[in-house]
Design a protein around this nucleic acid. Sequence first.
DNA 1: CTGTTAGCGCCTTCAT
DNA 2: ATGAAGGCGCTAACAG
Lengths: 335, 335
Amino acid sequence: MIKRPTIADVAQAAGVSPQTVSRAINNKGEISAETKERIMEIARQLGFRPSNIARSLVKQQTTTIGIVIPDITNPFFSEIVRGVEDLAHLHSYNVFLCNTDEVPERELSSIDSLLEKQVDGVILCSSRLEEVELASKLKEFPFAVLINREIEEIPEKVRVISFDDRLGMCMAVTHLVQRGHRHIAFLAGPERSRSGQKRLSGYYSCLKDNGISIDPGLVNFCEPSFEGGLHTLQKLLDAHPEVTAVLCYNDLVAIGAIREILTRNLSIPADLSVIGFDDIPMAALVHPPLTTLRMPKREVGIIAMKILIDLVEGNHPTEYNKIFLPELIIRGSTN
Amino acid sequence: MIKRPTIADVAQAAGVSPQTVSRAINNKGEISAETKERIMEIARQLGFRPSNIARSLVKQQTTTIGIVIPDITNPFFSEIVRGVEDLAHLHSYNVFLCNTDEVPERELSSIDSLLEKQVDGVILCSSRLEEVELASKLKEFPFAVLINREIEEIPEKVRVISFDDRLGMCMAVTHLVQRGHRHIAFLAGPERSRSGQKRLSGYYSCLKDNGISIDPGLVNFCEPSFEGGLHTLQKLLDAHPEVTAVLCYNDLVAIGAIREILTRNLSIPADLSVIGFDDIPMAALVHPPLTTLRMPKREVGIIAMKILIDLVEGNHPTEYNKIFLPELIIRGSTN
DNA sequence: CTGTTAGCGCCTTCAT
DNA sequence: ATGAAGGCGCTAACAG
């Protein structure tokens, strides 16, 4: 490979000092328009590109951020990442992407690599780190935004963005109760999932608020997948044929539930209503189209990045520890 | 923020020279085991982290690569990216993610930012740049891998990975012909899509090989979306009721086609067979489950990254300009 | 408006 | 086995 030209090469070719070239390429005012023109032209001819690496070393700023998520193939996270990258690109930041598969070791090593790369900030989604470990890593970053993960003490340079899972669940329950449902099952996802726990608590409290007696047998934990929804509903319906509506931990579980219901030659929503969570693209395309709670995923990504940029660039972030509200999208799977 | 400790700080605390610390953290042999131990312990206490920025400036290597794709929310690309990041992480590389939305200006500015960040290499997916522009940018990277995009002259430091779209289409056509279909429609996707063109040419040549007369009216271009499939098939079926099978540009188009067919109270596959392309996760979950051509997306990502690492690290890459073959996944939408 | 000096944190090279 | 000098490409700070 041919060595890329440096600022010094341009300077020599233009017969000026390196500093003058620096001023030209950085649009600093203190330079005559014509020398600047001339230098830029020479730089172009030489194919000069400023080295962000060298610049970063001096400024101790990399215009780079990291985003850490469980899995980019999960549409929930890819939407968030898209929002993040859109705003990053608009502000000339670059984004390091790290997948963790919810494996704490991989999350830790990814975080360490971002630290060594000296990112200006990091966005952590659904972190599975323990409280102490998380707090300790957070300290090492200049700034951080947490999405979908609470911590006990929020350091000054950290912001937290979350979804109001309890409210979302309550909107779903209310929707069903208003339509006359009294036996509402809940396929609750993995038992240790934090958002699952919040949704479960919303389920219980909202049923209570509506004066509906609680039957713990109507709640089943399950894998957060199509198969998880299908198999778990199978067992649940066998044991509880009185059920007329099924709430689901996420859309994939809901789509599995739909399949199980149709397999039994029951009809949706006439015999059984189904509600999902997340509003992934698939939700609108299955048959019947799925009523679900839309989480504003891309918006969350955009806001997270906006906050991070404000933090990095020393502006006063307008947004603090935002809580996003889900929106009930009523489609064909509920009556 | 507290200034992070440098190699010099550790050196001072340990009463040795910076160089010795460097040797310790880099596992160079020329250092006694005990001083190394001692230095590492002190480094740990101080919370020292090597600066990859400074290191990159010296070595002119960043252990960073870039991947440029149209849209991370498209499951086709998120799978590829996942494969790339998995292998990158395994080899301690970090990955810059850039979305282009197929807008050449955004692709160009993303590429420029990667160049300034001095990535060790880049992976370009489905690039929409013109031949000349692409060739010119490619020259600036140390190494590059192209996925799903041909170029006329392949520079020495560039590798090309593609999918055999023609073969895939031929597998689909043959599958249908063997089952007795003679009137096979093709919802061909956007007219300017390169993979669409390859599939179309496969469609024509394979029909010909099977001695089936070609009716250009059975080919309709369409948006590569659910709605595109639905609306285009609507028009096509109105004009050509003799059709008994529908090939689709991708799975989304196929799922739209399925919806249109079911809306007409026709049954699948009894009245009409449908085949998609890509095998996105949704394909297996719709009803009926979609017969489709699986592209080994994650594997492609892994291989692309493997080749890139080999290139960067000066190994002789075992793989050259690989062509991946699709696999026909037969499910319920064909008889 | 332009140039000079120094240093960002680390590694390469050569000495000791 | 350890240390000293120099430089990677750039910009901040100061001088002129």
